[in-house]
């Protein structure tokens, strides 16, 4: 298990756990990013916001958020 921020561009990972404030977790869940979902890291330059994809959806996550989403 590692935070999303440590993934590489092009990697496909499964969401395991989302930590953080309730509102943000609820938001991610409702947008379809919940534990068990597989996402592709479209771009991650390692120190800033990154983009993940699920199907046709492109989600931008701030670095802070990316550290709270745990994947494998």
């Amino acid at each position: 298990m590692k935070p999303l921020s440590k993934t590489l561009t092009g990697e496909k990972v499964e969401i395991i756990e989302i930590r953080g404030g309730r509102g943000l977790v609820t938001k991610l869940l409702n947008m379809g990013f919940y534990p068990g979902v597989i996402v592709e890291v479209v771009s991650n330059c390692g120190y800033g916001p990154l983009i993940v994809a699920k199907g046709g959806i492109r989600l931008g996550l701030g670095f802070g958020m990316a550290q709270k989403v745990f994947v494998k």
């Binding site: 404030g21 947008m31 916001p49 046709g56 492109r58 931008g60 701030g62 958020m65």
Partner: peptide, 12 residues
């Protein structure tokens, strides 16, 4: 407090 982290859909 800390700034809330960004979660934002990037439309096509």
């Amino acid at each position: 407090q800390e700034v809330a982290p960004l979660i934002m859909e990037l439309p096509p």
